[in-house]
Design a protein around this nucleic acid. Structure first.
Lengths: 353, 353
DNA sequence: GTGAAAGCGCTAACAG
DNA sequence: CTGTTAGCGCTTTCAC
């Protein structure tokens, strides 16, 4: 038999059940249930009595019982590869806020890179406790998604494409192109790119697309893309700092501008330039992507991808899906905007003809 | 009646129930339940048959049913004021990892400052779906905690003290004192502090304690604490950058060293100094707290508070508590260590006699 | 060691 | 509009 319920370490009071409220209000449990969940077919009078009684008893429905009986749990899973990185924690803030507003609980599943990928997918996500899930910047095989779908868990993706599910993202190719064109428009011809790695099967092709946008813009302008100037970093400030320092070490043959795929990397690049005695944007222009708060102090020009909003919109899409609307597995593209500060300026280096 | 179960948007298969496994294995549901939850009193043979059958059917227990019947949900709540700030997201990573290892689900509750404080405390936490909760750097009134306790939700705090519950923290007073003494030991006498605000009732007195440690060290060394040099910032890089710039503007009357309560603020201070043409540590020494990854590129001297580990330990403590051990409401102090790089050096400014 | 059976607390037909 | 009544799928005594 189940535990008698009650507190585990203090005043062990038996929490009131729906039946208690019904008795006190002088109605049936069915009416209490309807009244409390805001359903139709309850007289104003009954509703009032029920609310009064529930209030008096300090009643809160048991989610387990409610979920078991109804098949819905008002609980959404959020699956991501990292939580201590800016992009992910910011999307998470957006998702969490939107979920609270909608009255949903949030179950967090962190892969920690690939470490818990299998465990989460196999042991956690399938326990039928989720109404749906949002996958942030994750690459899920059709096998993985199919498994979730057939467990009755609809999915919405953020940050790229996901087979068979609706997704929210920005146009990374376009972002890469616009950032590069901003630099080209300022007269730069020697432009390097600091992007992310492909990262196996874990990620959406975000990094690749921004890099492709860079290459496309360069090609259109008839500019060469030197392999040595197309760097791969791990999206951290420090890694970008070190790689940029090496990149800029040669005073004769160095770029006059850098397009970094994230603001943290862009800021690291700026610091590296300064440590080398170069001025920004005097000797080097730098543009990033994100509108990360650290960019302000660096005077960083960037493209705002409205990260938090991506999370908010993902929840919106999910709720629409749950309501049976807009559940086509299409990709919804969110806009991204320039934020021009002063890390980018006209190319002046005489070397750069 | 409840929904027939099954998928919501693809192949609507009825998920196997415990009964199905029992039938296939030729035993009773009671035996299946025992076997699958690793309990005693099951013959090796029965256990094997059950596991085989469960495997075959792809059976996963329904957490709602299981929780309702047992009163336990293997679900822990994590409550914090922000998730998009480094300290919190890093503690969260630690908590999430430890929880996955232990087979627990994680429900995330983000206050967003104070925005959802009431909502979370009132509407979400009390729904009897949590076995316990960890509160990260949160100030909870005895009223709040008592409410949780009597709802049967044990609590563990991280980052300070919490009335009536076990807590994990570092010794902030000591950290503040050691950081300041490091500076004093290098010969500095004009030392400023960049700390956080008291922030109403939301936070643990972390900021205050680090500041108190600073004041204590200064007093012991017979050094004056100028009010104008005891700055209050919001823990962000950018705010620290601006405040430090103002602080250092006066070339005659300015500090030769700064103790910042976080690495992000310390890094912002370093950038501000450089923008003013000052060298670090030549003209200004800076020390932070955190071991934030950004510190490396800045060569920042800091005190590592092993943030992730605080989260891991909190879960450890919680599991002990749930197992009935070590449930005294005591504070467990974790160590913090110096990481000396090159943002701190001997005081050389002639002004500083 | 194993099975029968009584719930856990709530929801949703269905009948009235 | 409201009450009655089956369950939702599992855990856990209790008897065998």
């Amino acid at each position: 038999m189940a535990a008698a319920g009650g507190a585990r370490n203090h005043t062990p009071v038996n929490p009131p059940r729906l039946q208690d409220v019904a008795t006190l209000a002088g109605v049936s449990t069915a009416t209490v249930s309807r009244a409390l969940s805001g359903k139709e077919h309850v007289s104003a009078r009954a509703r009032a009595k029920v609310q009064q009684a529930a209030q008096e008893l300090g009643f809160v429905v048991s989610y387990h019982a409610s979920s078991l009986a109804s098949g819905r749990s008002r609980n959404i899973g959020v699956v991501l590869p990292y939580v201590d990185r800016w992009y992910f924690s910011t999307v998470l803030e957006g998702v969490a806020g939107a979920l609270i507003e909608a009255g949903y609980d949030l179950s967090l599943y962190n892969f920690e890179g690939d470490r818990y990928r299998e465990t989460v997918l196999t042991d956690f996500l399938l326990r039928k406790r989720l109404d749906a899930a949002v996958a942030v910047s994750l690459h899920l095989d059709p096998t993985d998604t199919e498994q979730l779908f057939s467990a009755g868990i609809p999915l919405v993706g953020v940050g790229g494409t996901l087979v068979g599910a609706p997704t929210i993202s920005i146009d990374d190719l376009d972002v890469g192109r616009r950032a590069t064109e901003h630099l080209i428009g300022l007269g730069h011809r020697r432009i390097a790119h600091l992007g992310g790695a492909e990262e196996g099967k874990r990620y959406f092709p975000m990094s690749n697309n921004r890099r492709a946008g860079y290459e496309q813009a360069m090609a259109r302008a008839g500019l060469p893309v030197q392999p040595a100037w197309s760097l791969i970093a791990d999206y951290t400030f420090t890694d970008a700092y070190h790689r940029t320092k090496n990149l800029l070490a040669d005073p004769i043959d160095r770029p006059t501008a850098i397009f970094a795929a994230s603001d943290e990397m862009a800021a690291g690049a700026i610091l590296a330039a300064r440590d080398l005695g170069l001025t920004v944007p005097g000797n080097l222009s730098v543009i990033g992507v994100d509108a990360h708060p650290i960019g302000e102090a660096f005077g960083l020009t960037t493209i705002d991808q409205h990260t938090r909003q991506q999370g908010v919109r993902a929840v919106g899409r999910l709720l629409e899906h749950l309501a049976g609307e807009n559940s086509e597995p299409t990709n919804e593209v969110l806009p991204a905007h320039f934020v021009v500060r002063n890390s980018t300026g006209p190319a002046t280096d005489p070397i750069d003809t």
